[in-house]
Computed example of a mutant assay.
Amino acid sequence: MTALDTPIVRIVVAEDRAPVRSGLDAALGHLPGVAVVGTATHHAQVPPLLDRHRPEVLLLGLALPGGDPIELTRAVRTEHPATAVIVIAVPPATNEQVLPVLQAGAAGWLPPAADRDTVIRALRTVVAAGAAPTRRPSSRDHRNELTAREADVLGLVAAGLTNAEIARRLSVSEATVKTHLNHAYTKVGLQNRAEAVEYAKRQGLGPAHGSQPD
């Protein structure tokens, strides 16, 4: 088995900015089990590449010229349901920019400078999920399974804060925020930030007044 525990994962990179592509090449270039089978620098180039290669993953630049990433994501999810869309968003990307694409069907998002381990985790998650996020929170109440800090973090995500803003709000490191989020995602059965927002709002989660870091 490969590092991704799956046969070759084919990836199409749709990103017009050369420095961003270089960063992705550096992260993807030496990953076993991964093959970049096409590169697009304009929205019009994406559909033919998907038709030709049927990739497992499309890395889609949020600012790719020539079209709307929301509409393209919807089209991919309709016409190529086996292809997961991961948005490439250069920080500081706001929830207002990323969330609509996630709601349109993207499986998640990555900064272009994501390190190798982050890229592996993202690819493993979407490949294991079979492209379309099919895991959903069950009807069982998971609130008692979350720690107070995990619930706080989910509530702040729903309030629109970035990981960095949550870290400052709770006086913890950004890495700690990511750890709490990963644990919460696993416990509740969430695939991405959009699902976390929906779950937190549905459960009425929010930061407890005066809560202290774990």
Rank of each mutant, 00 (worst) to 15 (best):
P100D: 11
A84Q: 10
R168F: 06
G210Y: 06
R21Q: 15
V127K: 07
A63H: 15
A75I: 03
T83Y: 08
L31K: 06
I86D: 00
I120Y: 02
L156T: 06
D16E: 14
A93E: 12
T6E: 06
R136Y: 12
A104S: 14
Q103G: 10
A131W: 01
G67T: 09
G108A: 05
V76M: 04
A107M: 09
S171G: 01
T134L: 05
S211H: 06
V76Q: 05
L60V: 13
V20P: 00
P91V: 06
D51M: 10
D51E: 15
R168P: 00
R17A: 14
A3Q: 14
L28H: 01
L154G: 05
P55D: 13
L99T: 13
A131L: 06
I166T: 13
R136L: 12
K178Y: 08
N192E: 04
T6C: 02
D25C: 07
L99C: 08
E174N: 10
S211D: 08
I11G: 02
A196I: 03
D117Q: 12
G130S: 00
A113E: 15
L181H: 10
Q97K: 12
I120H: 04
I8K: 01
G33K: 01
T118W: 00
I8E: 11
R149Y: 10
G189D: 08
T83N: 03
R149Q: 10
H53Q: 14
T39M: 08
G66N: 07
V157H: 11
G155C: 13
L72D: 04
A89L: 05
A104K: 05
D16S: 14
P111W: 05
H180W: 12
S211P: 02
A26Q: 09
L123K: 00
T41K: 02
P100K: 07
V87W: 00
A129C: 06
G206K: 11
E195I: 06
V85H: 02
A194T: 06
E15W: 07
A75P: 01
A104T: 10
S22F: 02
V119E: 09
E150A: 10
L24T: 01
P112N: 12
V36M: 00
S173F: 04
V34N: 00
S22G: 13
D214K: 02
G66M: 13
P69W: 11
E145Y: 05
L190V: 13
P91W: 10
I88P: 00
V9H: 00
V85N: 01
R116K: 14
V57P: 01
A132K: 12
V36F: 05
G130D: 08
N144I: 03
L154S: 04
H53K: 06
L59G: 00
G155E: 10
R169N: 08
R54M: 07
V119L: 01
G160T: 03
E56A: 15
R143P: 05
V90E: 15
D152N: 13
P137L: 09
A194S: 15
A184F: 03
I120Q: 13
G105F: 12
A104G: 09
V46K: 05
E165T: 08
R116M: 00
E198T: 14
P112F: 02
